[in-house]
């Protein structure tokens, strides 16, 4: 299966990746090759096979006791943020 620059645009938007117009055909060609490569999966006979989401099947989710274990770390955690004001993370104005 071959992907077009338009497909790349759609995917890049879903993934919120800014790519330039010059890059689009390059990604289209790269992704087409990758998709073509993985298309060989279609050959496998998988009727009735349960999809495997985890390498250790049979294990189940362990549960945590409902306890507050985390203290306020805002000051430390926000040192990595580019824009903070009054304890809030800032993003460009969102209009709803």
């Amino acid at each position: 299966m071959s992907l077009t620059s338009r497909d790349v645009e759609k995917i890049a938007h879903l993934a919120r990746l800014g790519i330039t117009d010059q890059e689009k055909p390059v990604y289209a060609s790269n992704l087409s090759k990758i998709v073509e490569f993985v298309d060989q999966l279609a050959r496998a006979r998988t009727d009735g096979v349960t999809p495997m989401a985890h390498p250790l099947e049979g294990l189940t989710q362990r549960l945590r006791a409902d306890e507050v274990t985390e203290a306020d770390g805002r000051e430390k955690y926000q040192r990595n943020a580019a824009a903070v004001q009054a304890g809030l993370y800032l993003v460009p104005k969102v209009i709803e």
Partner: peptide, 14 residues
């Protein structure tokens, strides 16, 4: 066609 199929093949391999 892709994700689910791959997880099935993964099951075969395992």
């Amino acid at each position: 066609a892709y994700y689910l199929k791959a997880q099935q093949v993964r099951q075969l391999i395992a």
